[in-house]
């Protein structure tokens, strides 16, 4: 992602239980890093589309940025397909797959 000076929020140290993927839930949406999407934009999409808290959206965005990808949703296949298309409508690079 593109880092704009002054817009990089503090590193989010928070960990929460949502970070753990429930292995009983078989499908996930993964958002992949790219050098174009703004960090502020990616975080905003996670917040406004998924309804995630500022802290969670920021943590997922940083995961994408630093680790190259992040699981941003999990659940039934049909729902994950919808989320993937929605991410594409925002210009985020997303795929769905079975959870590992």
């Amino acid at each position: 992602m593109t880092v704009i000076a002054g817009s990089t929020p503090d590193t989010d140290q928070q960990t929460d239980v949502e970070q753990l993927i429930d292995t009983d839930i078989p499908w996930v949406v993964i958002v992949w890093n790219d050098p174009v999407n703004l960090m502020s934009y990616v975080s905003f999409v996670f917040q406004s589309y998924f309804g995630y808290s500022d802290a969670k959206a920021h943590r997922l965005m940083m995961e994408v940025h630093e680790q190259g990808k992040s699981v941003v949703a999990n659940g039934a296949k049909e729902k994950m397909e919808q989320h993937t298309t929605a991410m594409h409508s925002y210009g985020l690079w997303a795929t769905y797959q079975k959870a590992d």
């Binding site: 704009i4 817009s7 703004l38 502020s40 934009y41 975080s43 905003f44 917040q47 406004s48 500022d54």
Partner: peptide
């Protein structure tokens, strides 16, 4: 876009 995002983020907050 970055300036727009700052405005949108403030509204969302």
């Amino acid at each position: 876009q970055e300036s727009l995002m700052q405005a949108l983020v403030d509204q969302l907050d």
